[in-house]
Amino acid sequence: MTFNEIKEKLSNKTVGIAGCGGLGSNTAVALARVGIGKLIIADFDVIIESNLNRQYFFFDQIGKKKSFALKENIIRVNPNCIVEAHDILLNKDNIPNIFKNCDIVIEAFDLAEMKQMIIETMLQHYSNIPLIVGSGLAGWGKFEEIAIEKNGNIYICGDRINEVSEQNPPLAPRVGIISNMQANIVLEIFLS
């Protein structure tokens, strides 16, 4: 398939991204680069300096809302990508409405509690929509521990071991690997 054929196939697809931090910002930009038609992104948070060790934002965006700043960055990469940005704390009540028209949803939260919440919510409302989750990305190295596990329509990317802590922070390389694995699965689903 040529890149023009790939772009054509992706141009009418919509991907939801739940969270605009390390996983969400990098996955969104990767998908915009390859020509996804529409991204629905959501986050309640504001960019702080410590986010810049892994998140697709710039120093001069500190203090901005992540959802709106990410929309700006996506459009700078690919102005043809339609971006619907929600400045909102996602929960089990608003997720079904925000992501109802998505072909695929990316889980890109930080907290395990939130990851659990979106999996249960999507299984309850949209078990037919593939959900691509990131779990286990802290630290550096340890390539061999990173894998994809498929469970029905749920894909788990990561090492499923390395939880974020003070001594095991999330860093650009490994977060970038996992987020691009999530974007890669999106392509695998849409192009196969």
Binding site: G22, A112, S135, G136, I161, N162, E163, V164
Partner: peptide, 28 residues
């Protein structure tokens, strides 16, 4: 079918069932 935490004692697994246990850890 999702089994919620409060149902862990009341939902039983029997022969032939298909069970998934997905664990989640923080970081994103």
């Amino acid at each position: 079918k999702v089994v919620k935490r409060e149902e862990y004692d009341s939902v039983f697994v029997k022969n032939g069932d298909n069970v998934s246990v997905i664990h989640l850890i923080s970081g994103g």
